[in-house]
């Protein structure tokens, strides 16, 4: 079961031509770097004019849920599922 976190994080993102969404390569959370091994799912959510991209990614055996506020360009680590 994913545990909520809801903290801002720094990210390393690749904007590849033709890709449907930015590719999340790594993020830094609480002074630790997490390299993304696999992107499981990405979807858009809309609330009013705000469009967010929601990522479910894997790193080191754990699963992370991150959200990109495309208007502000801000990334948030929303939840961690460390039970894999």
């Amino acid at each position: 079961m994913a545990q909520p976190v809801n903290e801002s994080v720094d990210t390393l993102v690749i904007y590849r031509r033709g890709a449907p969404h930015p590719l999340l390569h790594a993020f830094r959370w609480r002074d630790r770097r997490y390299n993304i091994n696999e992107t499981f799912f990405v979807h858009r959510e809309r609330s009013g004019e705000t469009i967010s991209l929601c990522y479910s990614v894997g790193s080191g055996g754990d699963r992370f849920e991150l959200r990109l506020d495309t208007g502000l360009g801000r990334w948030t680590l929303e939840a961690i599922d460390a039970s894999r």
């Binding site: 994913a2 499981f40 799912f41 479910s56 894997g58 699963r63 599922d81 039970s83 894999r84």
Partner: peptide, 9 residues
């Protein structure tokens, strides 16, 4: 199937 895609567990 979508939930299984999101969460490999």
């Amino acid at each position: 199937s979508i939930e299984q895609q999101v969460d490999p567990k």
